[in-house]
Design a protein around this nucleic acid. Sequence first.
DNA 1: TCTGCGCCTTCCCATGATGGCAAGGTCAAG
DNA 2: CTTGACCTTGCCATCATGGGAAGGCGCAGA
Lengths: 157, 157
Amino acid sequence: MNMMQMNIGAAARHSGVSAKMIRHYEEIGLIPKAARTYSGYRTYAAGDVHTLRFVRQARNLGFSIKQIGQLLGLWRNQRRPSSKVKALAQEHMAELDARIAEMQAMKRTLQALAEHCHGDERPECPILDGLSAARTSIIPTAAGAPAAGAAVRRSSA
Amino acid sequence: MNMMQMNIGAAARHSGVSAKMIRHYEEIGLIPKAARTYSGYRTYAAGDVHTLRFVRQARNLGFSIKQIGQLLGLWRNQRRPSSKVKALAQEHMAELDARIAEMQAMKRTLQALAEHCHGDERPECPILDGLSAARTSIIPTAAGAPAAGAAVRRSSA
DNA sequence: TCTGCGCCTTCCCATGATGGCAAGGTCAAG
DNA sequence: CTTGACCTTGCCATCATGGGAAGGCGCAGA
């Protein structure tokens, strides 16, 4: 048995990246096209799985696909300056900070409204009052955030 | 002039919700279908704009469209128990906390890796080393988070 | 050898919230 | 009437991911 070559399912299991996403990453050019068996099956070697693991780790840290593409380029480049990698990481950390700050601002506002809500059978509710208030006061512009319309919203669940 | 009735553009300006999104909200049933002029233009009264403002404030606090639908229902229901509103708010705050914790975990891991990166012209880089490490250690499962594959990712910006 | 099961392939659709563009109708002012 | 601003609908794109269908491949057991 040749453990050095595996099908996409095994590569998915070994890398933690779903087969679905492996195909997707290949399609968008994030990773090189996989070798194929004569009948069309994609085959992966240990090195390919290593790359996939790298991608997954980067996703776990919240890097975008675009950023991961850059990271992969640096990873493969033996003559990269580590300053470029660090810059990429710091840029991403700044994004994280901005999003964290934005969500914390939401949380604070919500908390303030909820604190005064009795939360009983009566209809009076400062939360609804706050939401229907004319003022734009709500959301005090999270420090250096993407202004009005943007916002963070959903994840994936 | 009848300030009580306006076209979608004016409603957008007065509510802070784009015309595009107003149509979208109507289409998905979040808000009732707007009245139309005989030639097909949507018309909005002050009350409609108030509703739109409510929706925007809720979006600004990060509520999902689904949750906003529930909030609107409670808002319109004069016999709502404030406990339901509060529960909705607290549920959302918990989601926010989870996402904040997840991103903070990413930030911490990234920070730890970056701290040891020289960030100069040399290729050695603990950040890349960390990403290519075999360990799954990266991302210490943010408290009560959507496990492995999920994660928070992008906003909009 | 036939059968069946599990894996693989591609292709299309959906999510959530939003923006953009295009083709065409409407309206008010000049 | 023309012009320009505004409206209409409809389709496409984003970002990362999952779901499912329809059909091919490969191996093992009867």
